[in-house]
Design a binder for these strands. Structure first.
Lengths: 145, 145
DNA sequence: TGTATATAGTTGCAAATACAACCAGATGTA
DNA sequence: TACATCTGGTTGTATTTGCAACTATATACA
């Protein structure tokens, strides 16, 4: 039953993009100030860290961080060149490979997190009560469903 | 008083980016399916349309859509090449110019809106009640403040 | 007034992104 | 088995972005 969106919907939509862009900009700036790698790197490394030794197939990483496969392929290239991850051939599927985080990769995670976290807290946490954050997450969850 | 963000904050933060990326992807895909120009173009044209004949200074456009000045400069180049906007020298400041939307630019707005609107409604409006949309806008507003 | 500094906008260059074409290897089906 | 189709991943090319340097005008202030 899709009709045209009402004004409230449009308002929320616009706010979402504006908020996202602003926050992203601020976090990126913070990372850069500290000469740390870009946020995407962190996202990938974090997902890999979460699953431990098993690693992830490339497409699984893509699903998690919503990045298209060609971009991901080259992002992994860059990470691999810095020895933060490595690609391992896998028996389960002759085409693909498993991506695993290296010790250096974990080191990067540890170095980035404090800066990232501070930035999240300043731009986000300080501006919402715990209750509001929960509510926001719930609403966004509905959008994502 | 910035401490480390609690889990709820992080959760909301992640959801925000995920939602944004997903929605953006879907809208872009819809626009492309209809061979329409990218969303950025729409954003700029819409802002220019809103202010009417006066037009906007380039930096004003940048403030509204949160785009850095060099990117904006080239985005305007592209729009101008398609004759959707034009740059006019202004007396108020010898450095800058005023950007104004052209009749062709308005035509593009009219062509894009139905597709954009349908996409917003499907991916966003249909998933939230009016009340929820209002609430979401309010929460995002606090983040942006 | 003259000099320093800030601001608006552009441009060169390097890096990242999007898109389409492609190469396996996997899967479905006759 | 053989053939078509699908999927995971890579690569070439064009476009867009990010960064830094630059031009030119405005503004602040001694």
């Amino acid at each position: 039953m899709s009709e045209f969106p009402n004004d409230t919907t449009i308002e929320a939509w616009v706010m979402l993009h504006r908020a996202n862009r602003k926050l992203l900009e601020e976090v990126s700036a913070a990372l850069k100030r500290h000469s740390l790698p870009p946020l995407d790197w962190y996202d990938v490394l974090l997902e890999l860290h979460r699953v431990g030794d098993a690693g992830l197939r490339q497409f699984e990483v893509g699903d998690k961080i919503l990045l298209s496969k060609h971009n991901l392929s080259r992002l992994i290239d860059r990470l691999e060149k810095q020895a933060l991850v490595r690609r391992e051939a896998t028996a389960e599927d002759g085409r693909g490979n498993r991506i695993k985080i290296t010790a250096d990769g974990k080191k990067v995670l540890r170095k980035v997190w404090p800066v990232y976290a501070e930035s999240i807290q300043q731009e986000f946490g300080d501006k919402l009560s715990a209750q509001e954050a929960t509510q926001l997450a719930r609403l966004l969850g509905k959008v994502l469903a």
